[in-house]
Nucleic acid binder design. Structure first.
Lengths: 344, 344
DNA sequence: ATTAGCACTCGGATGTTTTAAGTGCTAAAG
DNA sequence: CTTTAGCACTTAAAACATCCGAGTGCTAAT
């Protein structure tokens, strides 16, 4: 159904007022706060129609209106205006994401700053289908090795392997080069298996040390696959969670990996995905919205940032923030061919 | 004042019941649940005395008793029995703290597992007065360096430095060795300054690259100094925080660095410190208790693990858990002289 | 020294009344 | 035909009132 201008104005006013106030919006508020040149009665009639069409809802029969999922969707698709970030927020982002550290760390910083600006938990999902670009073993003390792993999207991870027997420097270098030559393109999640396989193949002489490296790598990479949820506490400030049971419920959903995993998986590779309320496959998420940014370029994304919270969410500001983050990352990401190819 | 056996028994029963139930404990409960062979009237008389002496409190005139700070203190000092950890908990700890990774990461794992077992937030404070043992620069691609920093207590940190100009391998090695030779013993918090000073001294030729390394090091080390607070959400399950305002309040205290910093600083170098309620200097913490473990040996500690929560806390289990953690760390910590001296 | 018994206190649960915000509808006005 | 004034009606939430039970302190008897 096409909405006429007045209905559009009313709908967007209801959405924006509700986003700001968390209170159901009544006809009088609407007339007073937004310059609608009609009487409250007229607005009431219009709101009734918008409700019949499914854009608005009443929490009870004599209450003001609240946007429905359909209403938010219409707002996001047709009515929402681009918002500019405040200088404050831009500075905050620029000062936090400084460009030191590898992409994994940059993404963590991004998740953190996004959650602070938007006052919503933010889930970071590192792209897991990542392939090994380079591996390097560095001796840092007699019985300690540092294993440096660089993946094809530029993430650098490292871990310590403790040795039971010491081993001469040149053997380490030899091992490092053999591994680097043979393991190119290995999916990171299988790296520890590939390392173990190397023992059987041609590296029996490194049997012990390889086993130890493998264990350490396995631990580090599996750990890293875990998602980071930044700023979960922020929900306590939302009126939606003034009842602690609801807060607990939401925290539980957030920490149930399967729910978040499945949902985020369902987001296609579009750059910015918005799932509102009952659009979620998962029933438990029917009152929440998720806005996900696939960080990076269309063809090559490095991870997902997902802002998650009650449907009542500042969609406009969230989109603006995420777009700015992505813009920033495009500048920060290594221009592939240039930097990565030299690691030996 | 010396308490007779019966009073001791009553006090410890009140404490333990209240710890378990979060409800004020009445004379009848006490007689029934704990094998006190006296009538409720007798118990009431004794409780009155215990209240007059300041060990117990009433939340209102006709309610059961709740331990006061003094009561908890007496319990902790005199009545509390050593508790054995369940096999479940021991296994959980053993499986989580696996010994891969450097001490910083091990401590993070420890904070995490402690908070999960005790269902309380746990703050990890890394020992900040740490000195440089070794620094090593590794080239990982044409314009990326990995800076590995090993401190004297065994923590390994590393960060990426991005270069504007590439630099030949042998120069890197030279630089790495010069730095390692000259910076031994530098406090980590000043490392970036020391690096910059090196430019003025004898390393003008490395001017650019040193600047870039310094920036990166500065960022990484300052970031790491931040405390980690594990499992803040756990408080939502406590009846104390059924009012969300109180939860918010506590979360705010936890995230106000100064409060926690100052308080933790006040804990002497004893291995295990317990601060109960109003024993805290900080007024805001008067309803909370903090149990802190200085991880490591008396002479050489590597960090602090602090379990924080309402005064109603399972002191016995907390102490047992922390002791086990410390025991574990003593085994994991490098035996100083052996491992650390080889990094070149 | 202990305890049965009782009057007393008070928080919390339950029920009732009031208030304020907001609606839908009707009928009149534009 | 559209808009609006006016009013009866609905409901959540706040304010107030009542009741109940867990628990106490004290007295007097054991």
């Amino acid at each position: 159904m096409k909405l006429d201008e007045r209905k559009k104005k009313i709908l967007s006013s209801v959405v924006e007022d509700y986003i700001a106030s968390a209170e159901p919006v009544g006809s009088k508020t609407l007339v007073e706060k937004y310059k609608l040149n009609y009487s409250s009665a007229t607005i009431r009639n219009e709101m009734k129609i918008l409700e019949d069409e499914g854009y608005l809802e009443q929490v009870h029969i004599s209450s003001g209106r609240v946007p429905s999922t359909k209403g938010y969707r219409y707002y996001v698709d047709n009515l929402m205006k681009d918002k500019n970030l405040s200088m404050l927020d831009i500075n905050y982002i620029d000062n936090t994401i400084t460009g030191y550290g590898d992409i994994g760390k940059l993404l963590e910083q991004a998740a953190d700053v996004v959650s602070k600006i938007l006052l919503r938990p933010t889930v970071l999902t590192l792209k897991s289908s990542d392939l090994l670009e380079h591996i390097k073993i560095v001796k840092i003390s007699e019985k300690l090795l540092l294993v440096v792993i660089m993946s094809q999207n530029g993430t650098v991870k490292d871990c310590i392997a403790k040795l039971t027997d010491s081993i001469p420097d040149e053997r380490i270098e030899e091992l490092s080069e053999v591994l680097d030559r043979n393991l190119l393109g290995t999916p990171l999640e299988n790296l520890h298996i590939a390392l173990n396989k190397m023992i059987e193949k041609d590296l029996q002489k490194f049997s012990n040390i390889l086993g130890e490296i493998s264990e350490s790598v396995k631990y580090e990479l599996n750990k890293e696959r875990k998602k980071l949820s930044a700023n979960v506490e922020s929900i306590l400030d939302l009126p939606e969670f003034s009842d602690v049971e609801k807060a607990k419920n939401f925290v539980n959903i957030l920490s149930t990996k399967e729910i978040i995993d499945d949902t985020l998986l369902s987001i296609k590779d579009e750059n910015l995905g918005i799932i509102i309320g009952s659009e979620n496959q998962e029933l438990l998420l029917k009152d929440y919205s998720i806005i996900t940014l696939n960080v990076g370029d269309k063809d090559k994304t490095v991870g997902k940032l997902s802002v998650i919270g009650p449907k009542r969410m500042d969609y406009s500001k969230t989109v603006a923030t995420l777009k700015y983050i992505n813009h920033k990352f495009k500048n920060l990401l290594p221009t592939e061919s240039k930097n990565n190819k030299e690691m030996k």
